[in-house]
Design a protein around this nucleic acid. Sequence first.
DNA 1: AGCCAGATATGCT
DNA 2: GCATATCTGGCTT
Length: 190
Amino acid sequence: MTPLGPAFFDRDVVTVARALIGVTLLVDGAGGEIVETEAYDREDPASHSFSGPTARNAAMFGPPGHAYVYLSYGIHWCLNLVCREEGHGAAVLIRALEPTHGIGAMRERRGLQSDKLLCSGPGRLSQALGVTRRLDGVALDAPPFRLLCGEASRRMVRDGARIGITKAMDRPWRFGVAGSPYLSRPFPRP
DNA sequence: AGCCAGATATGCT
DNA sequence: GCATATCTGGCTT
């Protein structure tokens, strides 16, 4: 397991979303292997950055390799990783992890749960890892974050329509490990 | 599988 | 002011 290189996020957001599958994401030592992501781009009607910079989405227009954290439906925190050059407003939403590290701490934060429901969804994942607004705009290459690339465990990555959006449904910018029990939702049959 | 409440920051009128 | 939101959990069909 080696840390991601500094140029990892300095690429097209769709490329990064796919490349993040299989990467281990930890916050204060708790987390797991990313099994589901979604890409959001500046020219994307479904993206928070579509209408330009605001106070909320400022991190999306900041440097790549930093976190963008926002509150969804007034209840759930969602973690995104900013991509491309500064000012591009592109980020990858982390939607699900396969828990591997700090499972005890994650169970405590989530309340008693089966491991399958610990990190299977953007809100659940943030609750399990303790992600809140305090991590908005924070760099990913230093504590509390750790991003580790494992052995080339080439798992089969599938793509499909993103979840929970009402615009740009045609863009197949959701990526995930086909058949993983830790997905927030299964991918349709091939 | 489908329906609905919950809680609030955000952005647009 | 007000409708909306990158959601989840619990309840009903």
